[in-house]
Amino acid sequence: MEVKLSVQRCHPDARPASWWQDYTVDVPEHATVLDALLAVRDDQDETLTLRCSCRSHICGSCTMRINGRSTLGCKTKLDAARARLREGEPIRIQPAGNMAVIKDLAVNLEGFFDKVKAVTPYLQPTGPEPEREYIVPNEAMLTVREAMACILCGACVSACNSLEAEPRFLGPAALAKAWRFTEDPRDGRDAERLEFLSSVPGGIWDCTHCFACVEVCPKDVRPMERILELRRRSMEAGFTDNNGSRHSQAFLDTISRSGRLDETRVAMRSVRGPSELLEWTPVGVKSFLRGKVPLRHKPIPGALRVKAIFAAAEAQGRRDSKRGAR
C-alpha cells in the first residue's frame, strides 16, 4: 500500500538547518512506521538519519514523535498512524522531544543517560552475602519486574511536560529506574535513595503528574505512578524538609480544614522560610494582580463532611498499615 510521510528534517550544516520533507513509499499492509522510514532510507534518500535496531520494541532505539505523539516507530502500525488523519494527509514524523537534535530523527542521548546514571542505578545490598541466591518471594520480583520492563527508549522523556519547564528534572525513565531499587528487597539503601531523590534539584517533586509518560510508555512501566510512590515513601521515611512535601502537606491541611484549596496558605507553607518567601515575591505579586492570591478564604458549606471523609480515610489507612505490619 502507498503511504505518505512528512518528516521533520534537521541537518545542522545545511541552510536552512531544518525543514519538512514529504515522501511517498509503497510498503506491505502490516508494515510499521519504522518499516516505511527504512524503505525511504533504502530506496529514496540515504541521507535520512534515524536510529533503529530490533524492530520488535525491545531495544528502544527508534523513539520519535508520530503525529505529535512520542512512541517507537517499530511499535506503530501504519494503519494506526493514519487512523485519525484526513484523506491524503501525510503521517507527521518528528524527532523525540526534550532532547537536542543531532541530525533528522537522531537526538542527543547523553543527557538522558547521564540522568539514569545520577540515580545510583545499581543494586546496593547491605547485609551479609547469601551462600547462594537471595531468597525473596516471587511476588516481589514480579513487582520489580514492572519497572525492569523499561527499555530506556526515552519516549516518556520526549513527552514529559515538566522537562520543558525544568531541564534538570531527572525525568520519568530515570525515576522509574530509581523506584526499581527502592522496591527491591535485596537493596539496602532505601533511606539514602529516598533522601537523594526528594532533595536533589530536579528530583521526584518536580513531576506535575500530567500522565503523559504513563500514556506514551511502550512497555507499560507507568513512570508517574512510580514517582508518586517514591514521594509517598520519602515522606513516610521522614524526608519532609523540602518544598514538594511541604506543598503536599499544606495542600492536604487546607482542604481538610475548609474543604477547598487555600492558595495563599499553600504557597506560604510550601517554602522553607521567610528568606525563600522573599525570593518568590515577584511571582506572588504577579499572581496577586491576576487574582490568584485571594486574601479571604472561606470554607465551603459542606466543610464538616469533608473533615469526616478525611477522618475516615485516616482510620482506614491506620487499619491497613496494621494489617501490613502483621
Partner: peptide, 20 residues
C-alpha cells in the same frame, strides 16, 4: 547465574523464594 542474581537480575522464583 547466582552471580547475575546477586547483581540484581529479577529472576522468577519458586514457592520457596529460590530461583525457579
Amino acid at each position: 547465574i547466582v552471580e547475575l542474581e546477586r547483581m540484581g537480575v529479577v529472576f522468577n522464583r519458586d514457592e520457596h523464594g529460590r530461583l525457579g
